[in-house]
Design a protein around this nucleic acid. Structure first.
Length: 648
RNA sequence: GCCGACGUAGCUCAGGGGUAGAGCGCUUCCUUGGUAAGGAAGAGGUCACGAGUUCAAUUCUCGUCGUUGGCUCCA
């Protein structure tokens, strides 16, 4: 007999060789119908895998993340089977589950495939799925595995097998289909009731561009048709929130081929919104004793040679600007930090002066690969809400915490509630590739971990993910649709102070090297606005939104009174407009709704007589009529409630 | 940069070897209206650009540029 520990802590005895499915049946038939795989001692196994020893067992359904993964991985097998039947001779490579489904990388040889072929592949998959073919995992010897794939003329699988150990190689069969696979499958293909192929894309064998290019087919599948429908609706919703679409509709920004790809043009509304964000942060930074600096958009190439950026990124950057002076070269600024280092160097410092905090909304230019450009989230010219803090190693701890406070303040003010942090530390196995003393790294890593803990951040630690010049803390926010985005970053840097030979005089009358902190709560203004757009769906917080209120007059007769109201609002610094076109009220309301204006002010005969205004909120709520003063107070209160002052 | 898809009016998109359509927007006129589209008329396009095939190309082929989904990259 073996003892199985279930997630609720209960321990049950079973005969050795019992399968997870039998365990499920012993609990309830309903459970047995729903489980699609299992996890035994933290290893994913099939529901039919006999268990031979004591251990803990988790039964997985499609609702569990790991269950989903096995479901999607199994679907990849099914897709491969369908594709192999329709395109005989294609070479399969790998077919894993990913966060939103699965893919299979296939060498299609001479076949061409496009999304027009998807419906018939989907049909074939469902047809095959209905056969309820069991997924059967079996061990094969390395020699047999190799000879099987050599005979199949599949060099990719052969390469994969060559890197595996004999005795650890398993094949998975279902129906007439065989695949190299380590396992973790659903019981049979019949569970797959809905499939949708999403896209084809090129992908290199093993992710290396020197290798042959394969065709990656992405798909998603579900146990119920209804779930597929819901998923597709979610995608539709995401599409509606796409910042590129909203940016166009709300007239925030645009691009022009004439100007150049990846170079955003901010339209008046977008520019004003961005400035509002900037002054919001400037105010907080002033409170936190940052000094604003301004540096030029270009710098002598030697500056970036000194910083090391030229060596590392020069090749892929905008090419140097030459001048009539022989040998003189300038670069478009790819980073603000070298400039700030030079500002630091312009005077001598005592430990009593530190920390020094230089902040700049610095526009930088990077020649991102053309295929990587994407709306405002990946561009070639963007403005960082950059700042560099020069401090003594002893001040690092406190400074880091202060930066976290600032980042949290920014997130709170903008309604990002669901975020996580990632602490990136050194690779303990390979400490030689990092610059800076052991002692300082220890200090910095401890400082970050302490700060994260003390500030109550939800964080994960990634060892080996630190930059060569220092550890860092990145913030990932989730938008309204649960998608994760990296925003703010705080990085410790030992490298630049070294390269620029930055110094301060310590209390011991000796010169010492300061530590630098790079930080950007927004990351970049472009990226941040994009994410904010997707997060809010274009319904910005009142303090930020381009148009807080719009006056809709019932007819031209009320134009004078409307204008009077408009100027009253403007006197109170409320961003209001007046729609005095000769359109019906219904139409004006519809357009204001689509432009996502938070408050609509309706003015007609009644309002003019009463010397009041009627308010409709975005979304349809009728707030009735009120004096202008009351409305002004309402707006101010709402802004104040969402936007607290930053205090250190 | 690489692979696939796409590029038609300011915007969203239909069409298709015989040289172009809708809705919205815009202009003018009528209408003066009460909480998500009032009516009419009009202007607006070398069908991304360049070459090729063809009697004829916006349509087919190739190339370029751009957009887009991925891959690789991201100071």
């Amino acid at each position: 007999m073996i003892k199985i520990t279930l997630p609720d802590g209960s321990i049950k005895s079973f005969e050795a060789g019992t399968t997870p499915m039998e365990v499920a049946k012993s609990i309830s038939e309903g459970l047995a119908r729903n489980i699609i795989s299992a996890k035994f001692n933290n290893k994913i196994i099939e529901t039919s895998t006999p268990i031979q020893e004591d251990g803990s067992l988790v039964l997985l359904s499609f609702n569990d993340n790991e269950g989903k993964k096995t479901f999607w991985h199994s679907s990849a097998h099914l897709m491969a089977q369908a594709i192999l039947k329709m395109y005989p001779g294609v070479k399969l490579t790998i077919g894993p589950a990913v966060d939103n489904g699965f893919y299979y990388d296939i060498d299609f040889m001479d076949y061409k495939i496009s999304d027009a072929d998807f419906p018939k592949i989907e049909k074939k998959m469902l047809e095959l799925a209905r056969g309820k073919h069991e997924f059967k995992l079996r061990e094969v010897s390395k020699a047999d595995a190799l000879s099987y794939y050599k005979q199949e003329k599949n060099p990719y699988k052969v390469e994969l097998i060559e890197n595996l150990k004999d005795g650890e190689i398993t094949f998975c069969n279902h129906d007439d289909f065989t695949d190299l696979c380590r396992g973790g499958h659903i019981p049979n293909t019949g569970f797959i009731k809905a499939v949708k192929l999403m896209s084809v894309a090129g992908a290199y064998w093993r992710g290396d561009e020197k290798n042959p290019q394969l065709t990656r087919v992405y798909g998603v599948s579900f146990p119920k048709q209804k779930q597929l429908k819901e998923y597709l609706e979610l995608l539709e919703e995401a599409k509606k929130r796409d910042h590129r679409k909203l940016g166009k509709e709300l007239k925030l920004f645009t691009f022009s081929q004439q100007v150049g790809q990846g170079l955003p043009l901010w339209l008046p509304k977008g520019a004003a919104l961005r400035e509002r964000l900037e002054s919001f942060l400037k105010k907080a930074q002033a409170e936190a004793a940052y000094d604003q600096v301004v540096t030029p958009h270009i710098g002598n190439k030697d500056l970036y040679v000194c910083s090391g950026h030229y060596e590392k990124y020069g090749e892929d950057s905008f090419q140097p600007i030459n001048t009539p002076n022989e040998g003189e070269e300038f670069l478009l600024k790819p980073m603000n930090c070298p400039h700030h280092c030079e500002i630091y160097k312009s005077e001598s410092w005592s430990y009593k002066d530190l920390p020094v905090r230089y902040a700049e909304f610095g526009t930088v230019y990077r020649y991102e690969q053309s295929g990587e450009l994407h709306g405002l989230t990946r561009v070639r010219g963007f403005t960082q809400d950059d700042a560099h803090i020069f401090c003594t190693p002893d001040q690092l701890d406190l400074e880091f915490k202060k930066v976290i406070d600032l980042v949290l303040y920014v997130f709170n003010s903008l309604g990002f509630e669901d975020f996580t942090a990632q602490v990136s530390l050194r690779d303990p196995e390979n400490k030689t590739k990092y610059i800076g003393s052991e002692e300082n790294w220890e200090k910095a890593e401890k400082a970050i971990l302490n700060a994260a803990k003390e500030k109550g951040l939800k964080y994960v630690v990634e060892t080996g993910e630190a930059a060569f010049y220092g550890p860092k803390l990145d913030f990932m926010v989730k938008d309204a649709l649960g998608r994760s985005w990296q925003l703010g970053t705080i990085q410790v840097d030992y490298n630049l102070p070294e390269r620029f030979e930055l110094e301060y005089k310590g209390s011991d009358n000796e010169m010492h090297r300061p530590v630098m902190i790079h930080r950007a709560p927004f990351g970049s203004m472009e990226r941040f606005v994009a994410i904010l757009l997707e997060h809010t769906g274009g319904n910005f917080p009142l303090w930020l939104t381009p148009e807080q209120a719009t006056i809709l007059s019932i007819s031209e007769k009320y134009e004078n009174y409307s204008k009077k109201v408009l100027s009253l609002l403007k006197n109170h610094e409320i961003r209001a407009t007046f729609d005095n076109r000769s359109e019906t009220t219904g139409k004006k309301i519809r357009e204001a709704e689509m432009n996502k204006v938070p408050y609509m002010i309706i003015i007609g005969e009644k309002e003019e007589e009463e010397n009041s205004i009627s308010i409709r909120k975005h979304g349809g709520e009728d707030l009735g009529s009120m004096p202008v003063e009351e409305f002004v107070n309402r707006i101010n209160n709402e802004v104040d409630a969402s936007l607290s002052k930053f205090r250190v």
